[in-house]
Design a protein around this nucleic acid. Sequence first.
DNA 1: CGCGATAATTCTCGTTCTCC
DNA 2: GGAGAACGAGAATTATCGCG
Length: 203
Amino acid sequence: MTESIENKILAKIKKNRRGRIFFVDDFIAVAMAKTVNKTLERLATKGELTRIARGIYTRPEMSKLLGQPLTPSTEVIAKAIAKRDRARILPTGTYALNMLGLSTQVPMNVVYLTDGAARKIQLGKRSILFKKTTPKNLAVEGELTGLAIQALRVLEKDKVTPEQEAKIIEFLKKEKPEVLERDIALAPEWIRQIMRKALPEKP
DNA sequence: CGCGATAATTCTCGTTCTCC
DNA sequence: GGAGAACGAGAATTATCGCG
């Protein structure tokens, strides 16, 4: 039973569900990085894998109905990359607005803030842009507050409509008050003022 | 299939420019 | 004056080609 590297890798891949994302690092224990790369590349040629970007592969989630491979969502990819880099990411730009329900548009170009490296990933006609930012921006404890801050930054000061503000405040109320209170300190001044409105009334 | 070499793309780091 | 964001250059990693 010759355990070829390819078999080992393939077996490992097949243990996971489709749609999962793999990195070279996932198989570093099986063989040298170079060899792993080669193997993944060959598997990609065979159609077992799809190459999303450099060093990032996924199992093509074939739609049996349409017979065409489904591209993983940008969110899945972004999170996978963040995990690999042990970096924290935060959706921003129009995407943040979308997640908050302030916009129904799903942008083609998704922008994430990261404390890792800035990079750009092309996904066919879509793209993910990782923007380097200061740790401060990512230090937020609550994911909700982080989203809210980013959304507000996109809307720009003085351009936030009362409706948008109300919606964000409503959203922030779902966050734990303690977390919210702490994260307020990390926001730009003008955003703090809005965030404070989401805090419970104080005696 | 596995390995080495070459070319392309990406990552990291430092500096500069702008805004607050 | 201080901080944050953007840009550019070099270094490293990855993709592709060819061979045993």
